Computed example of a mutant assay.
Amino acid sequence: MMPDKVTALDVAEQAGVSRSAVSRVFTPGASVSKRTADKVRSAADALGYRPNVLARSLITGRSRIIGLLVAYLENHFYPEAIERLSRSLQQRGYHVLVFMASNSGEEADEVMKELLDYQVDGIIAASVGMSNDLTMRCEAAGIPIVLFNRAQDDDRLSSVTSDNYHGGHKLAEFLIAGGHKRIAHIAGWEGASTQRDREAGFVAGLERAGHNLCARGVSDFDFEKAKVAARAMFDRPDQPDAVFCANDHMAFAVMDVLRFELGLSVPGDVSVVGYDDVTLAAWPSYDLTTVRQPAGQMAQATVDILLDRLADPETKPRRVALDGPLILRGSARIPKGYTP
């Protein structure tokens, strides 16, 4: 025979408090004295009681679950960012439900519709775009959306990114200061605002100094495609002497091709720079010069915006672009006395 399930009423009787006091103790953000909370938690531990989160969500109308939509995890920036987002949300009494979707608008919309079926309180879309119809559906349901590491031309959507334009500009200035003459770029997915802004800033920085791109490839932020782009870019007599890859993930692929397939020295023959500053960028094998995305600040800003919208649906959408520093390492020639 199954043992009787311990209820909140049992805990209340054991602790000598009201049932509503038990409910407040297990409701994140509810007001309750430390003395009462200690008595309730002690009684709950003794009885083996666990609150029924799903039942409480039916009463409050809040699941305290945030849906996180991610395009891909191969890029090490995203596992690190998801961890930061999850920890920040957990500290505020929320949990994360992760769904995967490609950059395809149709697939993203289908996954998002499935995500809405889980009655999430809010949505964070990491490098995934939102269609107009789906944005309207979320708004009608009172579900706020924040775009993480992606911006979109829609005044209804909040977004948090690094300052991609300024970051690209910094890299151009750095490579030019290093005396490079044949500077190339390997782009990510061209539908991404991050790609467009990084390249726009980079090209503007080159043009300001009287330079132009000597070569350009596209690899959709994909490791293997970046290898293909690098092989094609260096299969020419006037090879680049510097390459800006739109993220670190692609820069690692390019460095592998240059060193192990083409026998070129990095940075002796070619300087390579990236964008993100993932953990691997600091490993001696790559020692990559890159622009650091302030992932911790980005995650905190994303959570703050989302919870502000949950607390007050009339809060206006915000667009945040955080500056990230240029991190100098050994993959690129560093001009003497240069300070970013």
Rank of each mutant, 00 (worst) to 15 (best):
D4S: 15
D10C: 00
V11L: 03
G16S: 07
S18Q: 04
V22C: 03
V22S: 02
V22F: 03
R24Y: 07
T27M: 02
P28G: 06
G29I: 13
G29P: 09
G29R: 10
V32D: 02
R35P: 12
D38G: 06
K39T: 01
S42L: 12
A43C: 01
A44C: 03
A44Q: 01
D45N: 08
L47E: 00
N52A: 06
N52S: 08
R56G: 10
L58Q: 03
L58D: 02
I59V: 14
I59F: 12
I59T: 14
R64S: 10
I65E: 03
I66F: 02
I66M: 03
L68T: 06
E74A: 12
Y78N: 01
E80P: 05
R84N: 00
S86K: 01
Q90E: 15
R92F: 08
V96G: 05
V96R: 04
M100Q: 15
S102C: 10
S102W: 05
S102L: 04
E107A: 09
D109F: 00
V111D: 00
M112S: 14
M112N: 13
M112W: 00
K113T: 14
E114Y: 06
E114V: 03
V120C: 04
V120G: 01
I123V: 14
A125I: 03
S127C: 11
V128I: 09
M130L: 15
C138E: 08
I145Q: 05
I145K: 04
A151Y: 14
A151E: 15
L157G: 05
S158W: 03
D163G: 05
D163L: 10
G167F: 02
L175N: 06
A177F: 11
G179F: 04
G179N: 14
G179V: 11
H180W: 00
K181H: 12
A184S: 05
H185R: 07
G188P: 08
G188W: 00
W189V: 05
W189N: 10
E190F: 07
G191H: 01
R196A: 11
D197T: 00
A200R: 13
G201C: 09
L206F: 05
H211F: 15
N212R: 13
R216E: 02
S219I: 07
D220P: 08
P237L: 15
D238Y: 06
V243P: 14
D248W: 12
D248H: 11
A251M: 10
V254F: 05
D256P: 08
L258I: 05
R259Q: 13
E261Y: 05
L264D: 02
D269P: 00
S271Y: 03
G274K: 11
G274H: 01
D276A: 09
T279L: 11
T279P: 09
A282L: 11
Y286S: 07
D287Q: 06
L288A: 03
T289F: 08
T290H: 09
G296F: 11
M298T: 09
Q300C: 05
A301N: 08
I305L: 15
I305Q: 09
R309D: 02
L310D: 12
D312A: 15
E314A: 15
K316C: 08
R318C: 10
R319K: 15
A321L: 10
A321F: 04
D323N: 13
L328P: 10
L328D: 09
S331C: 14
S331Y: 06
P335V: 07
T339G: 08
P340I: 09
